[in-house]
Design a protein around this nucleic acid. Sequence first.
DNA 1: GATGAATGAGCGTTCATTCAT
DNA 2: TATGAATGAACGCTCATTCAT
Lengths: 231, 231, 231, 231
Amino acid sequence: MPHPSPSPAAGSAEPQRRARRKNARPGELLAAALDLFVEKGYAATRVEEVAARAGVSKGTLFLYFPSKEELFKAVVRENIAGRFAEWQRELDSFEGDSEALLRRCYTVWWERIGSTKAAGITKLMCSEARNFPALAHFYHQEVMQPGTALVRCILERGIARGEIRPLDLDTGVYLVLSPMMFLMFWQNTMAGCLPARTDDTSETAPCASMPFSPEAYLEAQIDNLLRGLRP
Amino acid sequence: MPHPSPSPAAGSAEPQRRARRKNARPGELLAAALDLFVEKGYAATRVEEVAARAGVSKGTLFLYFPSKEELFKAVVRENIAGRFAEWQRELDSFEGDSEALLRRCYTVWWERIGSTKAAGITKLMCSEARNFPALAHFYHQEVMQPGTALVRCILERGIARGEIRPLDLDTGVYLVLSPMMFLMFWQNTMAGCLPARTDDTSETAPCASMPFSPEAYLEAQIDNLLRGLRP
Amino acid sequence: MPHPSPSPAAGSAEPQRRARRKNARPGELLAAALDLFVEKGYAATRVEEVAARAGVSKGTLFLYFPSKEELFKAVVRENIAGRFAEWQRELDSFEGDSEALLRRCYTVWWERIGSTKAAGITKLMCSEARNFPALAHFYHQEVMQPGTALVRCILERGIARGEIRPLDLDTGVYLVLSPMMFLMFWQNTMAGCLPARTDDTSETAPCASMPFSPEAYLEAQIDNLLRGLRP
Amino acid sequence: MPHPSPSPAAGSAEPQRRARRKNARPGELLAAALDLFVEKGYAATRVEEVAARAGVSKGTLFLYFPSKEELFKAVVRENIAGRFAEWQRELDSFEGDSEALLRRCYTVWWERIGSTKAAGITKLMCSEARNFPALAHFYHQEVMQPGTALVRCILERGIARGEIRPLDLDTGVYLVLSPMMFLMFWQNTMAGCLPARTDDTSETAPCASMPFSPEAYLEAQIDNLLRGLRP
DNA sequence: GATGAATGAGCGTTCATTCAT
DNA sequence: TATGAATGAACGCTCATTCAT
């Protein structure tokens, strides 16, 4: 095995690449689409760019997703909407008290959504909902409704167990949800503190002088929320 | 009355009005642009529409602003004035306890910002921050920083008076601010509740099944916040 | 039974069927193409659809026909066979008067051509003539010329027998032919009476208010033609 | 006036060209569109080509016509549909007998439609109706319906005056119309005899060996029709 | 031979921008 | 100064054609 690394390695793995790619394509496209949608927004993302980032041509994208709109929906389903069933199961089988449940809820959300690119989707959706009513409807149906339903379950359970003071649930769910939403907005706007974009202009991080730790924020919110919800 | 009809000088106060209009032009364009940018977002707003709403032609707009991008920047700069000095004075002279102060703070914010077009500017700014990093920086310094400073004052005062439990202020300020930001986003996206599309599928307004009253939300947040902040 | 599963020779009569299919391929493709070209026109027919209807893949079609254009040409050549010799024989042996002959002529034409897919070929050919001048020429020589010759015979016979008034035959043949051509066009266009579009405006089938029965039309035409041709 | 002709003549007429063109543009575009639609069909005609033939850019076309479909409709209205009112007036004020009326009807039709490019529209419409149901509907409503209504008027008048034998009008109108339609098809398919296209390939006229005079055909048809319609 | 994943030129349409008037 | 006719680059999407397997 001489020259293992810098060699172009042209040869053995080529034949099956086509077949192997075929299965990988949707995932690669979804990943590229997630990146670009979050980075530039829905309207400003060109499908050709998504295709290019996934290493294929424009036409190929339409082999897997019939339209830009469906591509976006697939991104949402892949990264958010498709996971509610699992979360509901986790919730149903949880055995601790409401404080533990809420803390776990925030932790899990932060790990799986809040700190990932998926959080950018929510910000994007809120930014462009008015211009793409069909997408807004889809997002509402597939994400907002299940999300609020999940939180409502948690609160109802806590009230039933006497661990949470009775409160109007229609607005109560937003006591739990709004910190998450705030974080998703914050992370994807003011927080140029993220590794910063690598493409065009040199970009001084806007919040350089204003410390903000999402984890600390979340911690403070959950603490305060729990105090406030106590019976 | 010689040459009554073909003379071009028909009309008395015209020249003056023309001149008056000329000075007002940039302002009228900025006002129209503000409305439309807030209403539809940056990308979806057409310069022709801005010009039309300002009562001038498309070409005239480009006489005052060299490009759509510069128009947008001018709109944001124009509308994010500092009213913080006034608020700081109101705060300094407040004599009630922290609960009253915080409640008043939310009320005043809702009346002067949250329920007005100003909230739309914030949402707009956040939505487009990635595309206009310089503006995002500007906004952060001129709005976010003073805003957090103000809230920090309130909390420090409360802690000093023993009305608020000690807590890390760097993150604590966001306990107060995040409901406001959440509301500004919410009001300008999901609550758009467009009158349903008329084309293919029957689509009820997206928020039909998810009631949300900003006032009720604010009430619930302030209540819970105050409970949580109690020593 | 060694190697039962991974052996590719699984199946008994498969090889033969494969071979049989292989010879039938071009014909199956031509048949599918005929259907679709007649149904949707040249431009609107997608080669993939032709391949699918013939039960093969898109790539396979291009194995047999080098391009969509050549496929079209092959379809037209294949389907415009000459049945004129047979009709000439039937005409030569006819013994009734001219009215009976002309009536029979229309009836036979309607049964064998007018009401069948063959009419669709004619309409197709006429519709695409400008894009395929060579085919138009071919069609003119192989179909139009013999057709007019046949009708000319009928008229000459009638004039000779004193049953038809003398008239210029060069144009007279079209008195007989034009109703047929009109019908072939009509049947394959306006009479499509598509099941109404389902999207925006309420659109009843285009011919709803304009009743048209091919048989009644043919009947009226032959009646009027015979009256007009009487000496 | 030295060098009057080869001089570029740049100078006097330039200033008003813009304004003058503005009024002329729709007409120029409609003329170009008529040419191309008739020449290549609806689907195969590219709007960019229409614009180019009218001497403007693609975008300019959309300044005057909001879509390709509306451009086509405008062509139809300009060349056919918009004239029925005038024809109806001419019909209402006609004072001769039915033979004179029908002869005049054919003559006028031939001069204003049949022998012009407008005839190509009907052929086009029949060729592509199935693929563009909206256009088919429009054409049916704006052309076929008024056309048949007009002919029906003529026949009813003749029957009332005892100059035409009673006959079922629903099919009777087609006795009058089908020769026109036949001619429109014929002229625009088999009759490469027209001055032949000047663009790409050398095209031998397909009907070289088969004499066909539209005028003679029309003459024969009207003669025979009148004989057939006599009471 | 047969497949179907991949391509890319081309379509109708939009809209920020220009410039002759 | 103000206009609005004109532009052309770009978009989302289609589909005949190619070619590695």
